[in-house]
Amino acid sequence: MKGDKRHSDVNHGTKSGVSDKLVFLSEPHVGLWKQESIQIMAKRIAFLASETPVAQTARAALIGRYDDCPPEEADVIVALGGDGFMLQALHATQNLKAPVYGMNRGTVGFLMNEYAETDLLNRLSIAEEEVINPLSMRATTSAGKVHEALAINEVSMLRQGPQAAKLRIWIDDRLRMDELVCDGALLSTPAGSTAYNYSAHGPILPIGSDVLALTAIAPFRPRRWRGALVRQRSVVRFEVMQPEKRPVMADADSRSVRDVVSVEIHSEPSVSHRILFDPGHGLEERLIREQFV
């Protein structure tokens, strides 16, 4: 029968596309046909989880319900953990075509959706996609070694020892601050502006805004300087003054480089991270909501 063929096609993984036909939701406990005119997410799912017991337990339960496949073969990747693990998953899968849908099995879950074992296929089929570009960091150490890394949230300059750091700040090859005495400074994306940047009294940036937040961390001189907004296409360069006496480390989404003497940062448009959110709970709504907590 025609209906039987549709049922078989869906259960064995129809290709994603726009459909206005009857779709069978292949949850074990769901057995109803419904009309849909949305982009249907294919059913090949890769489940990734942090090492915590609660995340591993969730992964086992979801695999038992929906099966699993390697990330390279997946149409969608489901990440289970907190925001830290979500960042790891995004970096690890940045060369894959599949978007990432996070479910919170950690502590902080700003980038995550609520966890539930049931109705996952339907949630994936109606999820809204956000595309964000990371920052590119190029850090040079006192030994002359160059380290490169990408950061979805922010790139931070942090003092390594008991003495304050002394930084010189250039923007687009123009000296903007001759000396900043501080515990550190950071450059944040809009997506990362509610993380370390916000804790350091930096501004929350709307998703889609063409700016980055340059924020001082515990500034001593100029004492009242709290940072600046720079264009997303700008190149920001930090120079470390007196690096032997005042050593500084650079950090890109928890990947650290010690004893840096200069760090150059810019937005990287060639890399795009696709993140899925439940309708009405995307990054833009979360950023607005965070400002009224």
Rank of each mutant, 00 (worst) to 15 (best):
T14N: 09
G144W: 00
G106L: 05
W225E: 11
A252I: 06
R286M: 04
E72W: 00
R174T: 14
E114H: 03
A116G: 03
G17P: 09
V108C: 09
S193R: 07
F238K: 01
A139G: 01
V155G: 02
S142E: 08
E72L: 03
L111W: 08
I207D: 05
D9Y: 10
L287E: 03
E117P: 00
S209T: 15
M241H: 08
R286Q: 14
Q88L: 02
A74M: 05
P28I: 06
P247Y: 00
M86K: 10
R174I: 08
V146W: 02
S199T: 11
T141Y: 00
L167C: 06
G282T: 13
M157I: 08
A252K: 10
P71Q: 09
A218W: 07
A58E: 06
H273P: 01
G184W: 12
H12G: 00
K5Q: 06
G13R: 05
R123P: 04
S234Y: 14
R233N: 15
E154R: 11
A191R: 02
L90D: 09
V10I: 15
N11D: 05
G3F: 12
W170G: 02
E129D: 08
R246A: 04
E284M: 09
A213E: 08
G144S: 07
S188L: 05
L229V: 10
H91I: 00
K245H: 12
S267M: 13
V78R: 03
Q160C: 07
L276S: 01
V18C: 02
G144F: 01
I217R: 12
